[in-house]
Simulated assay, not measured.
Amino acid sequence: MTGFWKDRAVLVTGAGGFTGSNLARRLAAEGAQVRAFVRTGGSRRDLPEAVEMFEGDLTDPVDCARAVEGVDTVFHVAAVFRQLKGGPAVLKAVHVDATGHLIRAAKAAGCRRFVHTSTMGVHGHVKHGPGDENTEYGPGDDYQDTKLEGELLARALSAEIGMPLAVVRPCGIYGPGDTRFLKMVRPISKGRFFMIGDGTPHYHFVFIDDLVAGIMLAGEKDAAVGEVFLIGGPDHPTLNELAATIADLLGVARPRLRIPVGPIMFAGRVCEALCQPFGIEPPLHPRRVAFFTKNREYSIDKARKLLGYAPAVDHREGFRRQIEWYRKEGLI
């Protein structure tokens, strides 16, 4: 603890989600006066009683203005990961329009800093890794498209109106409380996992505790203003290395089955096209297949140098903790 956040009023959007709730808890533990922006009727997600709950609609400028009243720092974490109902329009409303409302409201309220959470996905596939903050953009779906649009709006608008801004691009977020990587861990645990493609692409993870520390540093350090930071873990394994690590931690045989990408990608597109008109989450979709084909390997040197960011959890230790939580919850 640095003592920096003690008694500072902060707003955390998306505080009903995995990253936002962990950030809100950590800030509260360091003595901040935390206001958690959640959807009307949304979950408190085990937030401490000291955290002030603010229920509202991020796409409503009036709610945004009310939420930032008396706030020192805004941490904008809210996102819609996948959205079948409403499609791209809903993603744009949350990732782009709401970002504009919040930044304007923060400036009008005299907030000290605005920390915007983007994603490593704005870069898409990194042809020659490791990439960095200047690697060309290459979003590959509606989620990544709108996250990039929201980030670019945040940067342009903050410069235009003079709202001090820092942007963080998290790598693949995981940790106890998150279930996204069950799709990989569970089949490996049952000996039913198959690698799509050759397994050589890298995937850069960030354990939730390290990510929260990085986001807070972006809100604290003067050197963060006007900058963009990739926030990742200390290593970026290949998918083959990841699968082997998970199998070893589970105490099962390492996966050996492989299938070509083409047929699975075709099946994913067909499955999504059939499910989408009915608002059904497809069991297989192109985004899931792309996990196995896109190289996501980054340098975090900029965050280390300017923020003093020092991630402590590599993928092996992180997945040990992740698997321990899955077992505790009876998920595997």
Rank of each mutant, 00 (worst) to 15 (best):
E151H: 12
P164C: 03
G172I: 14
V212I: 05
I208T: 04
D210Y: 13
L153M: 12
F181C: 04
R186D: 13
F181M: 08
A166R: 03
P170K: 05
I188R: 00
K190V: 09
I196M: 09
P170Q: 09
L148A: 12
R186W: 06
L211M: 10
I188S: 00
L148K: 11
K183D: 12
I161P: 03
R155V: 14
V212K: 01
L157R: 02
L148M: 12
R155F: 13
H202T: 08
G177P: 01
C171G: 12
G199C: 07
R169A: 10
E149G: 14
I173P: 00
A166F: 11
L182G: 13
Q144L: 12
G162K: 02
P170D: 07
V185F: 04
A166Q: 10
F194Q: 07
M184Y: 10
H204L: 08
I161R: 04
M195H: 06
V206D: 01
H204N: 07
I215W: 08
G177V: 08
I196E: 06
A218H: 08
P164H: 04
V185N: 01
E149K: 13
L182Y: 10
A159V: 05
M163I: 02
R169C: 12
A156R: 15
L157E: 04
K190M: 14
P176T: 08
A154Y: 04
S158Q: 06
P201Y: 11
L182A: 15
F193A: 03
V212L: 09
I208W: 05
S158P: 02
E151C: 11
V168Y: 07
G177H: 10
G199A: 11
D210L: 12
E220R: 11
A159W: 09
P170I: 02
K147S: 09
K221L: 11
M195V: 12
I173C: 06
L153R: 02
K183S: 13
Y203V: 15
Y203P: 00
H204Q: 09
L165A: 09
I208F: 13
M216G: 06
I173N: 02
H202L: 11
F193P: 00
A154M: 10
L165M: 12
L157K: 00
A213V: 13
T146H: 14
Q144W: 09
A213G: 09
R169Q: 14
T146F: 14
V185P: 01
E160Q: 14
L157G: 06
I196T: 03
L157N: 07
I208H: 05
Y174W: 10
P164M: 03
P176S: 10
L165S: 06
I196W: 09
F181S: 03
D210C: 09
P187D: 06
